[in-house]
Nucleic acid binder design. Structure first.
Lengths: 196, 196
DNA sequence: TAGCTTTCCATACAGTGTATGGCTGACAGA
DNA sequence: TCTGTCAGCCATACACTGTATGGAAAGCTA
């Protein structure tokens, strides 16, 4: 195992992905090139290709690295409304931690296939009274809504980071979900119109 | 006004934007290059730069060209629920007409600044009972939700074009908005839980 | 006709992703 | 200790990108 003359240890995909994420957070996705990444790792550009098939696969790896940050909390006994707010806030925090990468997260179905999140979300939706046969559609809609809202926020739709707008959006969702409870399982959750 | 030896008429920004949109719809945004565009127009690559400052401005022009397709209908007297559905369906049709460009539409605040749409949307939201002081937040949330849902759909979150999922999503929104009517203006719109 | 302006084009440069093939140094077996 | 073998690394090269620069040609006005 010949090791680079200029480095003490051999490269690894993990190291490459981590450094790529650092560069992306610093300078934006567009600014990331294999050459710059190699320079940051003090390595020849072609060395990267022994650990990563190509740039697209590299970005895939960075995306899954970021998505691994999502760790939805277990059921803590709070109301489904609170848990919905919590999940939304979690994704929002991630978007703001990696604002430059976030649009590229949204542009790939990867984001939707986070099973851990999906399971938790379904559990919460069931508590909200969403019937089983519509669960998938509602879950998808909710996920897409949240991701889309955050994308708009990241892209500067609102002036700066507008917490009130986010609260209003989540409230809209919670109110929409409440209809399922009123109709199906006979829950009596009254619409909460005030955000916050 | 020297005219290209190989063309009958001088170039124009309109012609360039239109051809760029054609190429994008055909081959995707990533495949668009100044050289290919020039070849499609039977012109030297550098000729483009006399009508368009650079590639970013070119894409800006293509985006506004596409956005000009949005022509929200006037108030036709139908219920606000129906009008919400109509607006959503309009944006959805646009997304499906230009699936390759759509993610780039979402990635720029341009999309949000379509005043014509904004005005119509606000009128409908007022009819739904959204109070004036929350109008901007609700409008933004709604716009972001819809754009995000369509982005997820375009990016292959659902298997194919899933009309039922879209209906479920719009229903979720309508139900959410209904809470404003119940609370604020005393409207009695009962939640409609069934999509379609 | 002369000059000006508009449009176009040829060349060139720096930067990109990556295919190809050769070098280096660590290990296994003799 | 000598000799493969091979993983890891690197130098070179190619086709492509956006675009800066400067010059040529065609129409207009004077």
């Amino acid at each position: 195992m010949a090791v680079s003359a200029r480095r003490g240890a051999p490269l690894s995909p993990e190291e490459i992905h981590a450094e790529a994420l650092r560069l992306i957070d610093e300078q934006g996705v567009e600014a990331l090139s294999m050459r710059k990444l190699a320079a940051a790792l003090n390595v020849n550009p072609m060395s990267l290709y022994h650990h990563v098939p190509n740039k697209e696969a590299l970005l895939d790896g960075v995306r899954t690295l970021v998505l691994s940050e999502i760790k939805p909390a277990d059921d803590d006994g709070s109301s489904w409304q609170e848990q919905i707010r919590g999940l939304g806030a979690g994704l929002r925090a991630l978007a703001h931690r990696h604002p430059s990468l976030y649009p590229y997260l949204c542009a790939h179905p990867q984001l939707m296939r986070q099973d851990g999140v999906s399971d938790v979300l379904c559990r919460v939706l069931a508590a909200a009274g969403v019937p089983e046969d519509r669960m998938a559609a509602v879950r998808n809609a909710l996920f897409a809504f949240t991701a889309g809202f955050l994308l708009a926020e990241i892209n500067g739709m609102f002036p700066g980071r507008d917490d009130a707008a986010f609260e209003e959006a989540v409230t809209l969702i919670v109110n929409g979900l409440s209809a399922y409870g009123r109709d199906g399982s006979g829950g009596t959750a009254h619409a909460e119109v005030s955000p916050g």
